[in-house]
Design a protein around this nucleic acid. Sequence first.
DNA 1: CTTGGGGACCAC
DNA 2: TGGTCCCCAAGT
Length: 803
Amino acid sequence: MKIASVIVDVPTKQTDRPFDYLVPDEWDEVIQPGMRVIVPFGPRKIQGFVTEIKTESEVKQLREMIEPMDLEPVLNKELLHLGEWLTETTLCFKIFAYQAMLPAALKAKYEKKVKLAPGMKEECLPEAIQSFFINNNSLDWDKALKNGLVSILQREAAKGFLEVVYVVKERVKKKQMKVVSPLMSTADLKIEMERLPSNAEKQKQVLHFFLDHPNPIELRQLLAEANASTATVKALVEKKLLSEEEMEVYRDPFEHRIFEHSTPLPLTSAQADVIEPILASIESEKHEVFLLYGVTGSGKTEIYLQSIQKVIEKGEEAIVLVPEISLTPQMVNRFKGRFGDLVAVLHSGLSAGEKYDEWRKIQRKEVKVVVGARSAIFAPFENIGIIIIDEEHETSYKQEDMPRYHARDVAIERAKTYHCPVVLGSATPSLESFARAQKKVYQLLTLSSRMNERPLPSVEIVDMREELRAGNRSMFSRKLFEMLKDRIEKKQQSVLFLNKRGHSSFVMCRDCGYVVNCPNCEISLTYHRAGSRMKCHYCGYEDHIPKACPECSSEYIRYFGSGTQKVEEELGKILPEARVIRMDVDTTGRKGSHERLLKDFQDGKADILLGTQMIAKGLDFPNITLVGVLSADTMLHLPDFRSSEKTFQLLTQVSGRAGRHQLPGEVVIQTYTPEHYSIELAGTQNYAFFYHREMMMRKLHHYPPFYYLVLITLTHENLMSVVSETEKIVNFVRSQVSNQAVILGPAASPIPRINNRYRYQCLIKYKREPHLTRILKKILDQYQTETKNGLQVSIDINPFILM
DNA sequence: CTTGGGGACCAC
DNA sequence: TGGTCCCCAAGT
């Protein structure tokens, strides 16, 4: 018998290795590496991934696998291999690496049930539980738990009356439809029709229908059109005149949408210069990484589209990554418009089933292009010709939980295998990427002017301290107010951008300034309008908003509603004539509302679009001539070495929304720290200056791109032990690395307690430590195996958030 | 002498 | 991760 090595769905250190199973003869021809299988594991049944088929095993007592879950592998060879690479580079469990590559729908769901043992009747059971088994012979374990039946059930199971069964289930079923087709030519069908008994009126009617429409037809449609019933069709199927088949159908999220077809636009000479090396790389099948640095509105997307065109012409495939928030219908339309049905879209707005169907299209090679957020980098193509990462600097490309990968790294790894180019596009490249381009690791391609020579908008920075001194206590500076008013008169549109951080909706006492914190986590609770409650977004703690302040008993305790709501109210007071569309989590919650709000704005149903991060990207409407940033510095003072970079990027992105077409654009940035270089330089939109300035800071403080980072976080219920264990780790690391490395810690995490567990961390900054991975593995081996002390260790290599 | 809770160990 | 086995402490 063949033997299959299987990675089982149990994420622990001890099970993070292949387990061998015998392949039953009936599956001998079927089982292949990359398939999901159901295997017995201890007393349960669980899902696993076959990584290898072999003929021998060191283990003597092998068990047989139960059954395959797929007819064809869900992971191809390359992806299986990529999984190993992911495991090595991010130090995660293999099972997490494989699961990350597949749509969530393919992650198994487990059910535990209690059934009557074979040959047993419910009468054998104690009366108290008989009723549960009268009609249905099985009882869900959760239900038993809720009813407090566990111990009695266990007793009966021990006596042999009941048995516990485990079921591995698919999360989403393939959507099927029944299709009926004739099994013979029209002529033969006619002969058969006449042979039918004269009383088979209905059957004749159905066959008659097929004489006119000999093509396969959906059962539902057939029934309606031929005015027949399922019984009739079944009779004909049994007579072998017709056939009835299940066919897989896709849920098409874009089914009823018409895409305006677009053709390649003539390139400007700057664009032509930039696309040339990319096309050359595609042509010569050479792996290269390009950093496409192009100011907002410089036509990067057209470069992407025409590069993809070339790749498709070569019979190869393209992956396009776009940050989740800019994966707007507008963006999708550009790709669907150019490549039509050859495009699959993967983003979080789709249901699990829809995502699965898009993924299936990729797997079955029915599409050539996938446009999607981070996880789309694992699209199961086998002939990749280009990988494009738009808005390369976006932090959402880094996954914050296991596997802690960066899509850019995965892209480069895959592109190496396929000998194809990677294009990183941005108007504000990350320092890491730009530095690599400077060192010629990446090839820099620059688009320095906007298409049709539109000037960049003029930017004015307003010092809000001055406003305060002049007696203006509102959140709108006089300048911004004047300009908003002006735009309304001119019937032009404005965009107001509110940085969410700092305006988050916490609950605060207006008398003493007391902020309501989570009792389990050291973090303020966020206000939720539904039911007027406050929630902790780390541990799920929930409570009513107190009537009075717990500190000073003042009744002036209130929530600071989502910043945008407040702005909207104030706008209503000072500019009552303005029509405002607000976009934030509250107004875009429902599916499709995001799209609808934007459509309304585009159609001129409002003068002002007010929103958070989600409006910073991709908006491209001709009538926008003013962009206002209400408070530029809210994210500047976060404890994050990238906060300056993020601020600069965000301000530049938002500014880029204005004046993209005929009308010139203006930008107003309000701030309390106008002298900060990231704000000042965002004002002049001077990336080069910002880059140099920020690089100096990074060098000075030993941060990327000069140093690499590794963040080790320990959590424990007991403050003393977490500190002392972190200390041990710090000392251990220190003893193992060269003296070039900087080791910080033990230090409390920026969120020092989550869910009653204290969090301490150790930050390693290093330039070159060839043995570091080995050292880190050693730490994980130590702590992930030691279950006794309840200490949890997590390691983030190249972290983005230092929390 | 039973019961139940907690920790160590195991799973091809 | 879930299960079982084993030990210990409290309860009938």
